[in-house]
């Protein structure tokens, strides 16, 4: 990307100290929920963070939303570093980064009217006239396809899909640069998902906003995003432009996810990749490559001892797997020669 990214995350880590009891003795341990994650979200683009539960995608979202503080690493929105924001800079950040959560039933305060919910990012950050606020609320409600005349209603008068539209209207009201969409359609009815996804896509262009999409459904990621990063146990294992990733997944874990995804037609035959076991506990992650205990393509000892680096493959497709070490080495060699 030529222009400066909207969001730049570098070396992000979030380790939670936990205490456990083992044989009646207290042991201190660390959960590495997010363990060195870096990515950019380009202006007006969508990056999908894909992974199973416990992979750290939700914690990453919380860190960017400043609902939690990173152990180390930086998050930059444009030129501002998110750490230790105060006063005007803090208010500005709060206006610029918004979120839409998974469950539209719990993410809208049942005791607030739609207009209060939608205008909250506006009213808490700076003084605006009532007329401005009313006009903006009507504008964003219209944009998400709701009747502005319903602004006086309470959330329970709306269906799930409509509530998700209200949440989006609220997120858009302060004209943000980045909206984090945390599984925005997975709790909606199937017949509502398509209209909601189309709405998200349409409004992205209209409001020129970037999305960070947290999602477990690969097909949704493909439809919604420009770029995809696959996470496993707190690390990004593969990161590429959406079309590159879907046309040629490289990491064995990504391949396994593809194989496990449900087909769109009974005649779709998928490569049978049987992943045995479950995601290991992030308290005691495996040595070397975090995926090696379940990996069907394990090469050998190197997988158990050495953490593979996230390296660029063919110039644009980043993957962290020893399978592609030779290729990377060859590339470096040829560059040197």
């Amino acid at each position: 990307m030529a222009s400066q990214p909207t969001l730049r995350v570098e070396g992000l880590k979030r380790h939670f100290p936990v205490t456990m009891w083992r044989r009646l003795k207290r042991v201190a341990a660390v959960v590495k929920a997010v363990d060195g994650v870096s990515f950019d979200v380009g202006e007006g683009e969508t990056l999908a963070l894909v992974g199973e539960s416990g992979c750290g995608k939700t914690t990453t979202a919380k860190l960017i939303l400043a609902l939690d503080t990173p152990t180390s690493g930086t998050i930059r929105l444009g030129d501002t570093d998110v750490q230790n924001l105060h006063g005007e800079a803090y208010r500005h950040y709060r206006e610029q980064v918004q979120a839409v959560f998974q469950d539209p039933w719990s993410s809208l305060n049942p005791r607030m009217r739609v207009k209060e919910i939608v205008s909250e990012p506006l009213v808490v950050n700076r003084r605006r006239s009532r007329r401005d606020i009313r006009a903006r609320v009507a504008e964003v409600l219209e944009a998400v396809g709701l009747n502005p005349a319903h602004a006086d209603r309470f959330p329970h008068e709306f269906s799930g899909g409509q509530r998700q539209r209200i949440a989006l209207a609220s997120a858009l009201s302060s004209d943000p640069k980045l909206i984090i969409l945390d599984e925005p359609v997975s709790s909606l009815d199937v017949s509502i998902r398509a209209q909601t996804m189309n709405l998200f896509r349409d409004l992205q262009g209209q409001f020129n906003v970037s999305y960070l999409l947290i999602v477990h459904d690969l097909a949704v990621a493909r439809y919604m995003s420009d770029e995809v990063a696959v996470m496993y146990l707190g690390k990004i294992v593969e990161h590429a432009r959406t079309e590159d990733l879907f046309s040629e997944p490289l990491h064995p874990y990504t391949k396994a996810l593809f194989a496990a995804a449900l087909p769109g037609h009974p005649d779709v035959e998928r490569e049978e990749i049987v992943l045995e076991g479950e995601v290991p506990s992030p308290i005691d992650p495996p040595s070397g490559c975090p995926f090696h205990p379940r990996c069907p393509m394990k090469i050998g000892e190197i997988c158990e001892t050495t953490v593979p680096a996230l390296r660029t493959h063919q110039g644009r497709h980043a993957v962290s797997c020893h399978l592609y070490d030779d290729e990377a080495a060859a590339a470096t060699a040829s560059a040197e020669a």
Partner: peptide, 17 residues
């Protein structure tokens, strides 16, 4: 028609009103 496909790129999903 309204379910996105993993196998192919979907330009625009049919959305049920």
């Amino acid at each position: 028609n309204s379910v996105p496909k993993l196998e192919e790129r979907t330009e625009r999903l049919y959305s049920i009103p």
